[in-house]
Amino acid sequence: MEPKKMKMRSEGLAVFYQQYQALRGIDMNIAANRVTALIGPSGCGKSTFLRTLNRMNDLVEGTTIKGQVYLDEVPIYDKEVDVVGLRKRVGMVFQKPSVFPMSIYDNVAYGPRIHGIKNRSHLDEIVEKSLKAANLWDEMGSRLNSPANRMSGGQQQRLVIARVLAVDPEVILMDEPASALDPISTAKLEELISELKKNYTIVIVTHNMQQAARVSDYTGFFLSGALIEFNTTSELFVNPANRQTEDYITGRFG
């Protein structure tokens, strides 16, 4: 791989749910301002890995984590790390669009508000900027006060992204963001992801290999809790070094 500025890095990362080991010693580098895709069959640990990157796994009872993850070379699993501050820097978009049952405006303004911004014109500015960045402003700019759960699934997912952008994160994690969307919404989302990498580091979990090939710069292939192969996307898809990777991307299993 060409030398690139690293944004995040995992080192010997292992995750246990009670007795079950979900991840086995993952070492991965995540390049700044690039899209990194995580692929692999269901239950391979790719979502678990994603959720360790902003410590969302802390919420699951009985989870034990070994190894370390670094954000800008600062360990995030140290005792004195402020988890709330970490999640502000490393935002997350989930599989099911999780818009809050409030207006479009309030959804986007939610993050800035909890982080203490009260000034109305400042909030207006953030909301507009975030919606524009999420390619929603043209569709929704005039309907900011209508309830967010009336929007289409694709619009809701872009609203969730706008909501994440509003807290000005550095890294955005996406957990199968397009799995509930139709092809047109998916295309819009992929286009958005390509635009966002100018300003953000993106890690995306996807079931869809074409999607990984289209949007990502790097791809990691997971199997049974292990990182089997990690490379630039073009290299991994065209010239996989590992047999299992080749079987998976050519559709022989999974």
Binding site: N54, V84, R87, M92, F94, K96, F100, Y110, R113, I114
Partner: peptide, 20 residues
């Protein structure tokens, strides 16, 4: 999903309870 969405934005647990 509401709670996760809120926590993933860096909201604390009590902020999530009160506001979402």
């Amino acid at each position: 999903e509401y709670a996760e969405g809120s926590l993933a934005l860096g909201a604390s647990h009590h902020q999530t309870i009160a506001r979402v």
